[in-house]
Nucleic acid binder design. Structure first.
Length: 747
DNA sequence: CGTAAATGTTTTTTT
DNA sequence: AACATTTACG
């Protein structure tokens, strides 16, 4: 393309934008909030604004920080901006919050007592560490699940509360335990030179708050900050933006913050997202310009009206007037099936029919609430030989062999990392069991030295058997030799290859001679390949291993979504946000499944409803809901009720052939055909519906019960989800039990 | 110390 | 039903 005068390029950039889009793109300066309804072209506005800023000289590429929620979105944004600009976006920060923070911390973390080689722990690593802390405290992991404790800690961190601040708010024994674990956990993380996902945000905020010169530097560097999916930001992210944008007393910054979002699509509250960030933007920035994008370019009016009608059942959403020029379109189908197998057969049958009629497979998507639901569907698709892809689910980097390989590299980069060391020391088996490992760890702890050093001096570890000492010495000889190559800056791909050979990991898998091991070997080769690609693209600096590790820790999936290959796409509703498909199926529309029983229990129904809104608005022209009358969970079959969201769809927009008329609450037909003698009382969740089939589970307040292990007790509460609360006479403890599974009987 | 059996727990959603 | 973790045994 020949170079054009800037004015032409700008005119071209703005052609094809509607008036509010254009207003947002050309906004001169200062805070800007874009309220962008589903399908209203928000990515378009973001990318065009970035290009506009560069073209008009409002910012150089290096002065722009564009933050997205997922890596996928970041990559897509970068590509689209490059297309608009006609050149590379090198130097522009287009990435997720976590990536941006990791990058800042790679240079600034030493100010907080970390080295540049700090390890990033994912959820699983963090949970393992929490469990270790609980062990150290002598807490029974059955009483308090490490996952629950970690969730509390994570929640606190997202609110920028440290362990001390958390302790001040303690109000129960559970929270007391969390506070204890929190302190140990933070101490261990810092000692091990490691950060969890939340730390990336928190520590960046810490650096910016503690060091005004750092804040001034980054504040000046990013003249324009653009944030996508603003409704999903948490408090730490909010604070981070304030620090970057508001500037320092002596040096006010241009406050060029553009946030784009839709309060109707806030679906990450469970992860600490605070919807108030978007609701209060105009209070934070009273001079903010607000632009509403209300024309939808994606869906038929029927689909939009249905989405609006569902969302209208929430209180306090911002008003929306989405409209479209795409016409009425077909009714939304709702179908009732016998069970999840019939449901899968129906969906796959419809897919076959549509494909026969000329629809491309890549135009079709199936959404579900939980990953586990993909399984039956996948079986059916395989049997009918329909190509499909599953987005999300078990991630490449969460596979055991990949985590092992990464742990080897991590230990080589960060010799203090106990979690990674523990992971690899006896994998493959080299005769270093739990007992020997504990001795090494304890020794490192008492001496206050890194694990690596303790292991390297195995002979000096008290209580270690000669066999264990020898095994450790062999292991550490290998590791030391590998570490030497790190020092020489051997490319990561070569290093990883050497790790797999010299650790004996490859031989170990090859010796297994199973199909599964073969698959694992292939995954590892794929990882080596990814490392070599990284080497090829890496700049010739010395920190390649650290960069590789920190970058990889933040990338969930290696295999990307493919649009062009004629594959039907399967994913969770959460994963569907930001995407669109001509044909959409939403399966498992049942109380307890969607809305999920836990949401019902925890009172986060409005968020579930927004999730439903997100799902509906992904569809361009064809939308089908299905639900099953009977569904298996934990093995046993249970009966279900149609999702309340189905009842919220305006009847005149819906085609309910084969489905019970009236939806939720009119499930009598479904129940009647099962031959069940008693009509069920109103059930609020799936588990409760299922509990109906087990008469023994019918506990009432005040019932005297006997538990196989805890002895006599009395029922002090009955909760939705088939949970009974029992206070036991033996130790006075109060426990929540699953009525159906717990070994309790009425007296 | 490692393997195999037994036991108990689990399912939201994700950077 | 599937999985992880704990326990028993060689």
């Amino acid at each position: 393309m020949p170079a054009q005068p800037a004015t032409d390029r700008i005119a071209q950039l703005l052609a094809g934008l509607n008036p509010p889009q254009r207003e947002a793109v050309t906004h001169p300066s200062g805070p800007l909030l874009v309220l962008a309804g589903a399908g209203s072209g928000k990515t378009r506005v973001l990318t065009h604004r970035v290009a506009y800023l560069v073209h008009t000289g409002g910012a150089r590429t290096g002065e722009i920080l564009a933050i997205t929620f997922t890596n996928k979105a970041a990559q897509e944004m970068r590509e689209r901006v490059e297309l608009l600009l006609g050149h590379s976006t090198r130097g522009m920060w287009v990435m997720t919050f976590h990536s941006a923070c990791a990058r800042i911390l790679r240079s600034e973390a030493p100010r907080l007592g970390y080295t540049r080689q700090f390890t990033i722990y994912d959820q699983a690593d963090a949970r393992r560490l929490v469990k270790r802390c609980l062990d150290e405290l002598g807490v029974d992991p059955k009483r308090f699940a490490p996952a629950a404790i970690h969730h509390q800690i994570s929640d606190a961190k997202n609110k920028l509360r440290d362990a001390a601040a958390y302790r001040e708010l303690v109000g129960s024994y559970f929270e007391q335990t969390v506070a204890d674990a929190f302190e140990l956990y933070e101490r261990d993380l810092h000692r091990m030179n490691a950060m969890d996902f939340d730390d990336l945000l928190v520590r960046t905020v810490n650096v910016l708050e503690l060091f005004p010169e750092v804040r001034a530097r980054y504040g000046a560097a990013f003249r324009h900050v653009l944030v996508d999916e603003y409704q999903d930001t948490n408090h730490a992210q909010y604070r981070l933006l304030q620090l970057l944008v508001v500037g320092t007393p002596g040096r006010p910054s241009p406050r060029n913050l553009m946030t784009v979002g839709d309060d109707g699509q806030a679906i990450y509250g469970f992860r600490g997202a605070d919807i108030r960030n978007i609701l209060h933007f105009q209070e934070d920035f009273p001079d903010a310009t607000v632009v509403r994008l209300e024309q939808n370019y994606r869906s038929t009016q029927t689909i939009l009206s249905a989405a609006n009608a569902v969302l209208a059942h929430n209180r306090g959403q911002m008003a929306k007037h989405l409209w479209t020029e795409l016409g009425e379109g077909d009714a939304i189908r709702v179908r009732e099936l016998d069970d999840e197998y019939a449901e899968a057969r129906y969906v796959v049958g419809e897919i076959e029919r549509m494909v026969d009629e000329g629809t491309g497979r890549s135009e079709i998507a199936v959404f579900y609430r939980t990953n586990a639901q993909s399984r039956v569907l996948e079986d059916t698709l395989v049997r009918r030989e329909i190509g499909y892809q599953v987005i999300g689910g078990t991630k490449f980097y969460e596979r055991a062999e990949i985590k092992d390989a990464m742990a080897y590299l991590t230990v080589l980069a960060n010799p203090q990392d106990v979690v990674s060391f523990t992971r690899i020391v006896n994998s493959p088996k080299r005769g270093i069991g739990q007992t020997s490992l504990s001795r090494v760890l304890a020794h490192a702890d008492t001496m206050g030295i890194p694990v690596w050093e303790a292991a390297a001096g195995a002979a000096g570890v008290p209580g270690l058997g000669t066999a264990a000492v020898r095994a450790l010495e062999r292991f550490m000889a290998t590791m030391t030799s590998l570490r030497e190559r790190v020092r020489q800056s051997v490319p990561v791909g070569d290093l990883l290859d050497a790790v797999l050979d010299e650790s004996g990991y490859r031989d170990w898998l090859e010796a297994e001679r199973t199909i599964e091991a073969q698959g694992r070997l292939e995954n590892l080769e794929q990882l080596v390949e990814a490392a070599r690609e990284f080497d090829a693209g890496a700049e010739a600096d010395q920190d390649t291993l650290d960069v590789f590790l920190q970058q990889t820790a933040l990338v969930a999936e290696a295999d990307d979504r493919r649009d062009d290959e004629g594959l039907v796409t399967l994913m969770t509703l959460h994963n569907a946000k930001g995407l669109e498909y001509p044909v959409v199926f939403i399966i498992g529309a049942e109380e307890g499944v969607f809305p999920h029983s836990r949401s019902i229990d925890e009172g986060s129904l409005e968020e579930e409803r927004r999730l439903c809104y997100v799902g509906i608005t992904r569809a361009m022209r064809d939308l089908t809901f299905t639900y099953a009358r009977r569904r298996n969970i934990f093995g046993a079959a249970g009966y279900t009720l149609p999702s309340r969201f189905l009842a919220e769809l305006p009847p005149d927009l819906v085609d309910r052939e084969g489905a019970s008329v009236g939806g939720f609450g009119a499930g009598g037909a479904a129940w009647g055909t099962t031959g069940t003698a008693t009509r069920p009382r109103a059930v609020t969740s799936w588990a409760a519906a299922q509990a109906r089939d087990a008469p023994s589970a019918d506990f009432r307040l005040g019932d005297d019960v006997v538990h196989a292990a805890f002895g006599d007790g009395v029922v002090t509460g009955v909760e939705p989800g088939g949970i009974v609360v029992v206070r036991f006479a033996g130790d006075g403890s109060e426990r929540k039990l699953m009525a159906e599974y717990a070994p309790i009987t009425k007296r």
